[in-house]
Design a protein around this nucleic acid. Structure first.
Lengths: 123, 123
DNA sequence: TCGTGATATGATAAAGTCATCAAATCACGA
DNA sequence: TCGTGATTTGATGACTTTATCATATCACGA
């Protein structure tokens, strides 16, 4: 069992660790492929991410270690799936938050775009 | 506008950046205080986190930069609130995922606990 | 057993984050 | 204006993560 899933650790620490596992674009990208298709082979993930195999493997290892995915070897191929459906939920909520942020910041941009230009200092 | 909220950036990159903002225990802890109480002063956060003020402030700055919180100064005091309600949703879903993970890993532990002890090598 | 495809692991420099202390800034009353 | 409380920002060494290449391991057919 990973040291982070120790009953003694405060939940906010465990949460922060979970978010660490999600903090790389490639790893988010992999998880999103897995929300769309129940099971995906490493070969397929290599294609969809465009990574070299050992690079992808390092990231997959992080995902496994954080209990975000499970791997199953079948012959010489390995297939990955989301470890829990809540992982997909998390990505979904993150998306809706980002959409909200994007809208708000665009509104702010639109507002500031109406401001007069700065008067250039003559000196 | 933060460079991460550029319409050109893929969503998985923006998401990963969001998760980075959430990847420290103190920052999760602050956000959770803010899910329980609409608005909290820095002084209060200092008490609830037990941090020294400049340490907390560094983390608050990360939260602001990631659009997770908004700050409002009133006199010599500054009050923080969640920037969007979806931040609380995110923490909630993370929690339910972790509960699931914890249950599953505990089940696995309970299973492996029934295995016989390793036979000690005589050499 | 060997060769090959598929995948994981090891190693390490560079980049990024964290922890912590020093200094600066803001607000306000005397 | 000065002193003080509250808070932020700057600086920097320690620690962690990322990127990338080398190597090892697993599976399988010849």
């Amino acid at each position: 069992m990973d040291q982070y899933f120790d009953a003694q650790r405060p939940l906010y620490e465990v949460k922060a660790n979970l978010f660490k596992g999600l903090s790389h674009p490639i790893r988010v990208s992999v998880l999103e492929v897995l929300t769309r298709k129940a099971e995906v082979s490493v070969t397929e993930l290599l294609t969809s991410t465009g990574l070299e195999s050992s690079h992808l493997s390092q990231h997959l290892s992080v995902l496994r270690r954080h209990n975000l995915v499970v791997a199953e070897r079948r012959g010489s191929q390995v297939f990955y799936r989301l470890a829990y459906p809540q992982v997909a939920d998390l990505l979904r909520v993150a998306r809706s938050l980002l959409v909200e942020i994007l809208q708000t910041t665009h509104e702010q941009l639109a507002t500031s775009a109406g401001l007069p230009e700065l008067v250039q200092d003559p000196s």
